[in-house]
């Protein structure tokens, strides 16, 4: 549902090292102005944005797969309708983001091909499986919760079309988190077996959710330039801390235990102390070795290839109709 470890093109320059156009550009960003597609921008800004927005878009699209897994097996018709609506939203969010990226001079098909060729990434979280219905609750609560944390901040990003896509997405996404928490409340208040399933989902998805914010600031090599350009507006650790502080009381309300023995309220900093996720696992998953990487990519490639005749058919039909109209005029 968003981007991690986006490589930033261009090294951070001091004002003296910038040329006149770069300085004027940085001044606009510092003044909080939005950059629009036709404005001049440094090549590195453009490339970094394409990478980040593209990765964000891919995450929305691939993110449909773990949830789509449960549409046919939702426990009630109402839950099924809700899950369908949520998955449809994710498709919409992907489309808003692809359009935002396209204003930077890259085509949607190009980005799709890069994803399929393994040259672009999506969030590590979607390489984990959804094993039980409780996972659908935990995904909405934790994964969408983490995504919202990041996306609310990104509404202030410097690139106009990206910022506007975020505003739209944030408006819609709150429903995603709440429906997830609603599933968790039902499960946690259900039979002992259901409560055990809810706890199990939290146990498995807690650390992968923390990983969604990307590596610790001290290891985050790409942040400085992206922060200066306001492509990123909060650091990984800031957002992760906010997420933990927000989520712990919600888990307590459910009567579930966060799987972290070191979790403890720190009065001095006004937030929780908590254990870092296993960063080795994070890098392994990003490198393609997570539990579901191969499945996700093959599902995307199959959908693309199997849909080719349909896309082409519609173009052929549109061309035929256009020719007929020309002839009639």
């Amino acid at each position: 549902m968003y981007a991690q470890m986006v490589k930033s093109t261009g090294t951070l320059k001091t004002r003296e090292e910038m040329d006149e156009r770069e300085r004027a550009f940085q001044d606009r960003i510092d003044a909080g102005e939005k950059i629009e597609p036709q404005d001049w921008m440094p090549e590195g800004y453009r490339k970094t944005l394409i990478r980040q927005i593209g990765q964000h878009a891919h995450s929305e699209i691939v993110g449909q797969l773990p949830e789509g897994n449960w549409i046919t097996r939702a426990p009630t018709l109402e839950r099924k309708a809700i899950l369908l609506a949520k998955v449809q939203d994710e498709a919409g969010h992907g489309l808003y983001l692809y359009c935002a990226a396209e204003t930077l001079g890259v085509s949607r098909d190009e980005m799709t091909e890069k994803l399929h060729d393994g040259k672009m990434k999506y969030s590590s979280i979607f390489n984990y499986p959804t094993l039980t219905w409780a996972d659908i609750g935990a995904v909405g609560w934790l994964v969408d919760g983490a995504a919202i944390m990041n996306q609310v901040a990104l509404q202030r990003t410097s690139y106009g079309p990206y910022s506007r896509a975020m505003v739209r997405i944030c408006k819609e996404e709150s429903f995603h988190q709440r429906q997830g928490y609603s599933i968790m409340m039902t499960m946690a208040a259900g039979t002992p077996e259901q409560k055990r399933m809810a706890q199990d989902a939290l146990d498995r998805l807690w650390y992968p959710s923390l990983m969604m914010f990307g590596p610790s600031d001290k290891d985050s090599v790409h942040s400085a330039q992206s922060m200066a350009w306001k492509i990123k507006v909060s650091t990984n650790d800031e957002l992760r801390q906010k997420f933990v502080d927000q989520t712990v009381p919600q888990a307590e309300y459910l009567g579930l235990t966060i799987p972290d023995e070191k979790l403890d309220w720190n009065e001095a900093k006004g937030g929780y102390d908590f254990s870092e996720p296993d960063w080795q696992e994070f890098h392994d998953v990003l490198a393609g070795n997570g539990p579901c990487n191969a499945d996700r990519m093959s599902a995307r490639r199959t959908a693309w290839e199997d849909g080719a005749w349909y896309r082409d058919g519609l173009v052929a039909h549109a061309n035929k109709r256009a020719a007929q109209r020309m002839a009639a005029e």
Binding site: G92, C99, E102, E172, R311, L314, V315
Partner: peptide, 23 residues
Amino acid sequence: VGSLHAPDAEMAIKNARDVYTRR
């Protein structure tokens, strides 16, 4: 409200319904 891809105007309207008026 935004943009989208479609093969022709008719499909563009249908896609716009799904992408931009879900609520």
